[in-house]
Design a protein around this nucleic acid. Structure first.
Length: 584
RNA sequence: GGAUCAGUGGUGUAGCGGUUAACAUGUCUCCCUGUCACGGAGAAGAUCGCGGGUUCGAUUCCCGUCUGAUCCGCCA
């Protein structure tokens, strides 16, 4: 028996095979012992098929959940089919059953609907990964990578690997540092992205590069953020923005079609950054539901509410037919939420019994009320959510966060639809209104729009960039830009960011040097592989699309990384661990 | 750095100032020939995260701490 090879995978067993003998390998997913007849759900990577072990088969060894078994048997038609199972019309009557390996009782139920906490799941990840949904997600992820390889290979891209051990450039995200033993006291940094290398590959003349690139960022984690993650990293020479976007749309079209058989409509919609922020309160708008932001500054600045008379920005949106949900308690919870987004408060106005209702209403003039009703075409049971601030960013993003929460909470989203769009025409710099400093909105190599070049010296905050993000269902699934290829422009941008010439030389000297040797116009993009997979797999947790993820403390509960190392290792590296100070 | 929530048999939860600490599932034993969330009978299995305080008495209330999840800051 041991020498007999598997003849089929479980999902291949079908009605047309009735009468045939098959050899299967799988795990016991479930056993139902009815006395002198036993049913076993046999699971392999393709699915489940029911085994029938009847009374004529006396010597059948006792099996338990997760035992790995090897069976020889005959496909038979089931008396009563199970419609929930792909193989539900047939079962395999077992003649020989061998246990390949036994299993302890597992600490979690191996099923899509597992009961275990994430902590347990990560500690026993190899068991968690047996769950069909996670197997499916990782297969989906592999398919996406395969599509990327095929598409990019067919479009004359060359896959080139760039170093994992690189130089530290302490801009942007915090880096993971790696001490060098050979070079005492010095450190490599793991790449946040292969940004500089891929641009250098353009200068080297490869014209079209890609890489399935591992990236590392030592920042705090989130449900959609891991410290090590993967980018489909792409760079091209001589393409303008429209050409590049078109080529990338082809890639997305192929991925959606070949992984989940979904047709996305090309060309993709392009939304200006300013529209995204002003209308949807987000630079990654989810346009599957409405709740669009309206500017209410002119309507409400004339109210009797003092705060509104002086505050610079007032905006709001309407939620149709939900006023009854906005109880006192519910509204109180919202004001808790508002604090998170540095909002003073969310103001709630309900429209019930043909009247506006809410703490704000007594401060409104009759004209204010009419204007609001007309602005939003208010109907019975509608509710207005309003926010105000002197900082434009806070109003937009504060309301955007609320919009997003309510959109999900009230299920305003058609989950069968994929909302794929570009957000384009970004500001080159992000201006921090609190500190008054400039920072790159994307990264410091982003090319300013030609028509704005003359504003670099005078109004850098009004300079826009050739920059684009791909947004899927409100997730930033990727982003890129045309790059600066003129030395003078690059230096100007560095200077605006507050880098001294010495800084530039020290951090990016090799890169600036390369600009002297005929840099081509180039442009690129990077897709977040995990984000893309999350969207296609319809999960909101990045851990569901990574085989061995870290928890929120960036630890791996299974391997227990990161861990202490021996004194000898530290000594070789010349590293001393500082005593943790107990008094702050 | 901050906020919120959670921590009770293997797993997931309930509970309450005094309990034999409950329920589901899993595990073990027995019964069962058509189950597919099989069913039936029984059994084992918990220092209620840790430390301190209040109290005659704390799993329960309070303080601290640790762990986890989610979010804000952060993520050029």
């Amino acid at each position: 028996m041991e020498k007999l090879e598997r003849t089929h995978y479980n999902n291949e067993i079908s009605l047309s095979m009735v009468g045939r003998h098959v050899i299967l390998i799988g795990r016991v997913s479930k056993k139902r012992d009815l006395g002198s007849i036993t049913f076993v759900d046999l699971r392999d990577k393709t699915g489940i098929v029911q085994l029938l072990i009847n009374h004529e088969f006396r010597n059948f060894p006792n099996v338990r959940n997760e035992y790995l078994i090897h069976v020889y048997g005959q496909v038979v038609k089931k008396e009563v089919p199970n419609k929930l199972l792909k193989t539900g019309e047939v079962e395999v009557e077992v003649h020989i059953l061998e246990i390949i390996n036994e299993s302890d009782t597992t600490p979690l139920i191996i099923d899509d609907k597992t009961d275990a906490s994430e902590e347990v799941r990560l500690k026993y990840r190899y068991l968690d990964l047996r769950r069909p949904c996670l197997q499916k997600n990782l297969m989906l992820r592999a398919k996406i990578v395969k599509c990327a390889h095929e598409y990019l290979d067919n479009n004359n891209f060359l896959e080139i690997e760039t170093p994992i051990l690189g130089a530290s450039t302490p801009e942007g995200a915090r880096e993971y540092l790696v001490p060098s033993r050979v070079n005492h006291g010095q450190f490599y940094a793991l790449p946040q992205s292969p940004q500089l290398f891929k641009q250098l590959l353009m200068i080297a003349g490869f014209e079209r590069y890609y890489q399935i690139a591992k990236c590392f960022r030592d920042e705090d984690l989130r449900a959609d953020r891991q410290p090590d993650f993967t980018q489909i990293d792409i760079e091209t020479s001589f393409l303008n923005q429209e050409q590049l976007l078109k080529m990338m749309e082809g890639l997305l079209e192929k991925i959606f079609k070949e992984t989940i058989n979904y047709d996305i409509k090309l060309p993709l919609r392009q939304m200006e950054y300013n529209d995204a922020v002003n209308i949807y309160g987000s630079d990654k708008p989810d346009t599957r539901f409405d709740l669009k932001l309206h500017d209410l500054t002119s309507i409400l600045s004339t109210s009797k509410f003092e705060y509104f008379n002086t505050v610079k920005y007032i905006k709001g949106f309407v939620v149709k037919n939900k006023a009854d949900v906005f109880t006192r308690k519910y509204v109180d919870n919202l004001s808790l939420l508002s604090k998170k987004y540095s909002m003073r408060n969310y103001f709630i106005i309900k429209y019930v019994n043909n009247e506006l209702e809410g703490s704000l209403v007594k401060s409104l003039t009759e004209e204010n009320k009419m204007d609001l009703i007309n602005e939003f075409h208010l109907l019975e049971n509608d509710v207005l959510c309003i926010a105000a601030s002197d900082i434009k960013y806070d109003v937009n993003f504060g309301l955007g966060a609320l919009r997003s929460q309510l959109g999900h909470e009230f299920r305003l989203i058609d989950i069968d639809v994929f909302d794929v769009l570009w957000v384009v025409h970004w500001p080159l710099f992000a201006y921090d209104e609190h500190t008054g400093t400039l920072a790159p909105e994307h990264h410091p190599f982003t090319r300013p729009c030609d028509e704005d070049l003359n504003k670099l010296d005078t109004n850098p905050r009004d300079v826009y960039a050739y920059c684009y993000d791909i947004i899927i269902n409100g997730y930033e699934a990727g982003g890129g830009s045309l790059r600066i290829y003129k030395k003078e422009v690059q230096n100007k941008v560095f200077n605006l960011l507050g880098f001294t010439d010495e800084d530039i030389k020290r951090k990016f000297g090799f890169f600036i040097d390369a600009f002297n040797y005929g840099t081509p116009p180039h442009a690129g993009i990077a897709f977040g592989l995990e984000r893309l997979t999350m969207c296609l797999a319809k999960t909101d947790n990045i851990k569901d699309v990574i085989a061995f993820p870290k928890n929120l403390k960036a630890r791996c509960p299974m391997t227990n990384a990161p861990s202490n190392v021996t004194d000898k290792q530290l000594e070789e590296l010349g590293i001393k661990i500082a005593e943790e100070s107990t008094n702050e």
